[in-house]
Simulated scan of single mutants.
Amino acid sequence: MGKLNIFEITFSNPQAVYYGGQLIQGHVTVELNDEIKMRGIRLHFDGGARVHWTERHSTGSGKSRRTVTRHYSSSETYFNHTLVLFGKGPGQKGDDPVLKAGRYTYPFSFQLPTGIPSSYESFTGRVRYSVGGVIDRPWKFDHTTRRAFTIVDPLDLNLEPMATQGASANDDKTLCCLCCKSGPISCMFKLDRLGYVPGEVIPITGEINNGSRRKMTSSFADIRMTVQYHARTKTRTRCNIVSKIWHGAIEPGDSDIWNGDHLPVPPLPPSGLRGCRIIDIKYTAVLNVVPSGLAFDLVVPIDIILGSIPLQRVAQQYGLPPPLPGTNAIPMQPSAPSNMGLPPPSYAECAFGKVNIREESDNEHTRGNMDYAPVYSYYNWNQHEANTFMPVTEQETE
């Protein structure tokens, strides 16, 4: 058995969900089976965004032609703070203290800056927040531990002018059938509002007319999450279908009506990823028609807004009382008592699932759970499970 038995970080808020400007509090537990000489025990609070991807390019010609791998990246820092819990800070002189065998608890607190973006994790880019602990030992390997936490940007739909507005869109397409033009297929798509929060459903209203001589295999509605990653010299765009519902086939000459079908909104970060300059997020509701045979889908999109705080009139439809004068529609701080008799939202794991958050500075001895998924505000008014959405697939678009 080694000298170190326990080295872990515990947050006072068990959900580990915070908002910009809040105070993070908790404690570090250290349990030693034998004394350890050390420079000190430190905590490092880190928050920032990073974008990185590689592309293979061919250069030269003929026999001198070769393939090179180019890296595209950018990053930004929101905070970087070190707190000394015991002993000396980095670079401080003096004798190294010895911590005797036993169990120790060190409380900590850290004030988050305001205006920081929501947590976000993907293969190409991320916004990540964590607390790392180190037992700094002279001339020996350090003991390290790390714990991630989630930041949620309180994007209030009541402050977004477009959120309450409805929108409609339509398009048509003419297919070719045995070298002859067929009649058009047309699609009308309508939404009664544009602002939603995770846990709601989007009522899909639309009409599809198949004026062609070809069968339509199906129609479906989906939510698309379009993410732009900005490196220093290039931007990469990826589109994820995060929720989807289907209708069946449409025979030639027939129509199909979408009469308020429910398209669920899964746990996702708010639109825009406000506060982050290198990652942009946009959401679109789309009604699609799938022709049989060789033909592109007919696609009719409407941009929507995904927030963290729901529209007041929508919350009241689910039996929640109107807010008192001078208060928000929904209290957003997880640990704060409500002054309106309303509970804060629940929090659900991101639709993308867990990722491994091991950093380059970590090694196989770093303690802490390295499988992590951000969680987001989730208003389960429609009583569907947050973890029953379709698997998310990521596709690159030009």
Score class of each variant (00 low, 15 high):
residue 332 M to K: 00
residue 332 M to D: 12
residue 332 M to T: 13
residue 333 Q to F: 06
residue 334 P to I: 07
residue 334 P to M: 01
residue 335 S to Y: 09
residue 335 S to A: 08
residue 335 S to N: 12
residue 336 A to M: 13
residue 336 A to L: 12
residue 336 A to V: 11
residue 337 P to W: 03
residue 337 P to R: 08
residue 337 P to E: 01
residue 338 S to C: 10
residue 338 S to F: 07
residue 338 S to Y: 06
residue 338 S to K: 14
residue 338 S to M: 07
residue 339 N to F: 13
residue 339 N to D: 12
residue 339 N to R: 15
residue 339 N to Q: 15
residue 339 N to P: 04
residue 339 N to W: 12
residue 339 N to A: 13
residue 340 M to D: 09
residue 341 G to A: 08
residue 341 G to Y: 06
residue 341 G to S: 09
residue 341 G to K: 06
residue 341 G to W: 07
residue 342 L to P: 01
residue 342 L to W: 03
residue 344 P to W: 08
residue 344 P to N: 08
residue 344 P to V: 08
residue 345 P to I: 00
residue 346 S to F: 05
residue 346 S to D: 10
residue 346 S to A: 14
residue 346 S to M: 13
residue 347 Y to H: 10
residue 347 Y to F: 15
residue 348 A to S: 13
residue 348 A to V: 07
residue 348 A to W: 00
residue 349 E to Q: 10
residue 349 E to H: 11
residue 350 C to E: 06
residue 350 C to P: 02
residue 350 C to V: 01
residue 350 C to I: 06
residue 351 A to W: 04
residue 351 A to H: 05
residue 352 F to K: 05
residue 352 F to H: 10
residue 353 G to V: 06
residue 353 G to A: 07
residue 353 G to Q: 12
residue 353 G to E: 00
residue 353 G to S: 07
residue 354 K to G: 10
residue 354 K to L: 11
residue 355 V to M: 13
residue 355 V to Y: 11
residue 355 V to S: 14
residue 356 N to K: 11
residue 356 N to G: 10
residue 357 I to E: 05
residue 357 I to T: 04
residue 358 R to G: 13
residue 358 R to D: 09
residue 358 R to V: 12
residue 358 R to T: 15
residue 358 R to H: 14
residue 358 R to E: 15
residue 358 R to A: 13
residue 359 E to P: 04
residue 359 E to L: 15
residue 359 E to R: 14
residue 360 E to K: 13
residue 360 E to Y: 13
residue 360 E to P: 06
residue 360 E to W: 11
residue 360 E to D: 10
residue 361 S to L: 15
residue 361 S to I: 15
residue 361 S to N: 13
residue 361 S to R: 15
residue 362 D to G: 05
residue 362 D to C: 04
residue 362 D to L: 01
residue 363 N to I: 08
residue 363 N to H: 07
residue 364 E to H: 13
residue 364 E to C: 06
residue 365 H to I: 10
residue 365 H to F: 14
residue 365 H to Y: 15
residue 366 T to L: 12
residue 366 T to K: 04
residue 367 R to H: 09
residue 367 R to K: 10
residue 368 G to R: 00
residue 368 G to A: 03
residue 368 G to W: 02
residue 368 G to V: 07
residue 369 N to V: 12
residue 369 N to W: 05
residue 369 N to E: 11
residue 370 M to H: 09
residue 370 M to C: 04
residue 371 D to F: 10
residue 371 D to V: 02
residue 371 D to Y: 13
residue 371 D to I: 06
residue 372 Y to G: 01
residue 372 Y to W: 14
residue 372 Y to N: 01
residue 373 A to Y: 00
residue 373 A to E: 04
residue 373 A to I: 05
residue 373 A to P: 04
residue 374 P to G: 02
residue 374 P to H: 01
residue 374 P to V: 05
residue 374 P to K: 04
residue 375 V to Q: 08
residue 375 V to T: 11
residue 376 Y to M: 05
residue 376 Y to I: 03
residue 377 S to L: 02
residue 377 S to Y: 02
residue 377 S to W: 02
residue 377 S to M: 00
residue 378 Y to P: 01
residue 378 Y to K: 04
residue 378 Y to D: 00
residue 379 Y to M: 08
residue 379 Y to C: 03
residue 380 N to K: 09
residue 380 N to G: 11
residue 380 N to T: 03
residue 380 N to W: 03
residue 380 N to Q: 10
residue 382 N to V: 08
residue 382 N to Q: 14
residue 383 Q to Y: 11
residue 384 H to L: 05
residue 384 H to I: 08
residue 384 H to N: 09
residue 385 E to P: 05
residue 385 E to A: 15
residue 385 E to C: 13
residue 386 A to Y: 07
residue 386 A to R: 01
